[in-house]
Simulated scan of single mutants.
Amino acid sequence: MKKIFLAFATMLLMICISSQSSQAQLKRFSIGPFVEAGFPVGDFGDTHNTGYGIGLGADVKLIAGLTAVGSVSYFHFGGKSFNTGGVTGNYSDYNVVPIRLGLRYNLISILYVKVEGGTVQYTGKNYSGVGGLVAPGVGIRILGLDVEAKYEAWFKDGTRSFFGLKAGYNF
Rank of each mutant, 00 (worst) to 15 (best):
I108E: 08
I31Y: 00
S128L: 15
Y105A: 09
V130M: 15
T47S: 05
S92G: 08
Y74P: 08
G65T: 03
A68I: 04
G85R: 03
V60Q: 15
I99H: 02
K114L: 04
K61E: 12
N126S: 13
P98S: 12
P33T: 01
G117L: 05
V87R: 15
I54R: 04
E116Q: 05
F44G: 03
P33M: 00
I31W: 00
E116C: 03
T119P: 08
V60T: 12
D46Q: 04
D46R: 02
D46G: 01
F75S: 11
S81L: 05
V35N: 04
H76T: 07
G131C: 14
L62T: 13
I31C: 00
G55C: 10
A37E: 00
G132Q: 06
K80E: 15
A68G: 09
R104S: 09
G124C: 09
G117P: 09
K125H: 04
T50D: 13
L56R: 03
N83K: 11
R100N: 15
P98F: 04
Y94L: 12
G55P: 03
V60M: 13
D93M: 14
H48A: 07
T67K: 13
G57M: 08
L62A: 15
Y122C: 06
A64I: 09
L66R: 15
F75V: 06
D43F: 09
V120L: 07
I110D: 14
G79F: 06
Y127R: 14
H48G: 09
G129N: 10
Q121V: 14
